[in-house]
Each structure stands twice: as structure tokens, then as C-alpha cells.
Design a protein around this nucleic acid. Sequence first.
DNA 1: CTGTGTGAACCCATTCACAGCC
DNA 2: GGCTGTGAATGGGTTCACACAG
Lengths: 207, 207
Amino acid sequence: MRYHKIPDETVRRLPLYLRGLLFSSQDLQENISSRKLAEVLGVNPWQIRKDFSYFGGFGTPGVGYNVEKLTKQIKKILKLDIGHRATLVGVGNLGAAILAYPGFKIYGFDIAAVFDNNSKKIGQKIGDVTIEDVAKLPMLKGRQIDLGIIAVPRGSAQEIANILVDVGIKGILNFSPCRIDVSKKVKVITIDIAMDLARLPYYMPSS
Amino acid sequence: MRYHKIPDETVRRLPLYLRGLLFSSQDLQENISSRKLAEVLGVNPWQIRKDFSYFGGFGTPGVGYNVEKLTKQIKKILKLDIGHRATLVGVGNLGAAILAYPGFKIYGFDIAAVFDNNSKKIGQKIGDVTIEDVAKLPMLKGRQIDLGIIAVPRGSAQEIANILVDVGIKGILNFSPCRIDVSKKVKVITIDIAMDLARLPYYMPSS
DNA sequence: CTGTGTGAACCCATTCACAGCC
DNA sequence: GGCTGTGAATGGGTTCACACAG
């Protein structure tokens, strides 16, 4: 089954819904209504229903959505039902924070390889992974890693991306504040946290 | 002058344009065309022209946009022409990374106060700020800080937000993966980096 | 001839309203 | 009565085409 018709904006929200479901499942509720989920996440109920309608009826009128089934379905659509192994390149402050960030695990991600170019860091163990020399990055092929996370300075990002593509990575999360272009076959998502901060003052009262 | 009619999506892109201008200004080009800027950033030229058209003619037909003037104008609209002082709450891995992140400075942000609840960290100096006891957060009033950055565990985020609002903060950048609700007068932007990673597999070929 | 600025057309997403089901 | 699912309406953003300026 393909879900080609799910709008991008809906895909963008699915992880949010998933987060809501995963955290609310601690309440041991078997079902959850769109109104309840909307309340938890701070969005509109009809937006949620519309989004869910793109992949068919999982809700029961008068009752709501079965939390477990819906969770599984969303994971399947996002291809999170199979675990993903990622590699992190660059263990500066940001890289270290990413490595320690607990949020990845709940989506089934495992940062299985870590690289840096600083000889003082190479060989160090963080958690259960050992930092490897970035020069050995091209030898990543065959280690079943499909995702790359780039947390290196701007000037090196494209170069690292090229190597990642060469070794067969299929998706890149780029934390460097710059454009990266790669083969159309590889999806790149760039995050620049400063950009979000930069539009905050616009919405603040002029004081 | 008010810019009430600038669409939100355009506001979201303005920091991106600003980044492009700031970095390209190293080339010592006096003018830049929408095509050139689009190329650098990986977006459409007509999108850029349309966006710029919302705040009046800064371009010269046949030549392009004056980099300096345009930069100033965008900064003014985003209210980045006046500097902003921010406080960071939570100096874990993520907090430390934020503190060290150079990207904030180019937009004129200064992280002027830092708080944590870990007694081992309190009193430590990072860069040129000293970590203060989070219990003293309510005493922030009068220190000319208008922005708050939350990097604490999910359970404490709302509580910290409430205090920040009490001391008169006007905008919050929230890195905790949870909803925060505050007075409508305060703008909150929530960033959950795991959510972006979570939608990456969707776009990857099924292998 | 190059590149901006913008009305119009198009396309997509959000919102609404309500039929249908438990 | 409560809640889902969805066609229809609305609203907004993107894309286009082209008039106009240097």
C-alpha cells in the first residue's frame, strides 16, 4: 500500500501526533478522541480528523481512535516501524547534545556510528558508541546505516554530505546553516535553530 | 510604519534571506539579484521577489537589490535592528550547545543570563556568563531581557515558562517536546529536533 | 536586454458543516 | 448524545506572465 496522496503538511504533523499518542498512552487509555488529542497538542480537532482521513478509517464514531492501532499506523506511514540506524558526523557542542538527546529513541532511531576530525576526540566513548576518525567515513558502507546527521561547521557540510551519499545514505538531517545539494534520491532536511529565534521578535509587542 | 500584511510564511523565510545576504556580503557585491540569491539558498527567484514586494520596492530593475539596504530593511521588519537580550534556562547538553552556538550572534542576540538547578553547575562560568540558580529566576525583572530559551526536561517546561512570563519576557523559544501555554501576549515557538528526523524516513526510498 | 514588481490564475491547506455510525 | 469521516467552501500561498524601469 502506498500513501502517495498524503499532503506534505500532514506528514509534517504526523510526528507531532505520534508524540502525543506515545506520551498519552501512559494514561492507559485505550481510546482517544480527536478533541482530547487536539487539546494535549494545542491544535484543532478537525485538523486532526482531516489528517487521519487521508489514510482511512481508524476511528470509531462516538468513541475515538484506538491508541495502539493508530500509533502503529502512523509509525508505518512514516516508515518508523522498522528501526533506523543513523550516523552522526561532528561531535562539537551540538553533536554531543544530539547524541545525548533522548527524543530520538522514542521514534526508533539508533545513532550507531559517530565521527569527528579532532584527534583528541577520536577513540573516546560516549554512551555506547566510540568516536571514529572522519577520514574513515567512506568505509561506512555495509554497516546498515541509512541516515546521516551533519553537525559540522558550515564550510565542511557539503563535503560530508557528498561522502554520506557515496556510502549509500538515503536521508540527511543537516544542522549546518547552509544549503546542501545532493542527488534527488536523497532527502535532506536542514534545521537552523537560529532561524526560529530570529523570527520571534517579529511577533513580540514593540514594548 | 506597520507591516501587518506580511504573510506568516514570508516572515518564516525572512531569516533565511537574511542569512543569505549576510553570508553573501562577504563577496563584496553591492547588489544581488533575486536569481542569484535564490541559487545560493535553493529557493525560487519569483518567491523571493514576491516576498520582498510585501514591503515595497527595494530593487532596481536590471540590477538587483542593494545588499546593505535590503539587509537593514529585513532586520528592521524582524525587529532585529535593536539587539535582544535572552536568558537560557537549563544548561544540559542541549543548553550548552545553544550557548556555544555561533548562529545567534549574527542575528544580534546576546544570551545575557543563564540558569540551572544543578548545584554543581551553579557558579560555573561559560564564556562570559555565570550560571545562576534557577530559584533566582523570578529576580530577573529589570535586567532588560526580553527573550527566554527553555532547554529543561519536559516536566519542568511549563513551570519555567510561567516564571519567564511573570518577569516580563515577551518571547519564548522552547526546546522541550511539549506544548506550553501562556498569555496570548507572549509568543512561543517550540522546536523539537526529533520531529524533523522522524519525517525523514517517509521521504526515503523503501530500499 | 536584464531584472523588478504585481495582478491574476492556480493550487493546496484549513475550516466548516453535516451525514452517518456507535 | 458523542464522535468520526468527508465533501464543500473558504482562505492563503505559490506560480505565472507580463508591464515597466534601468
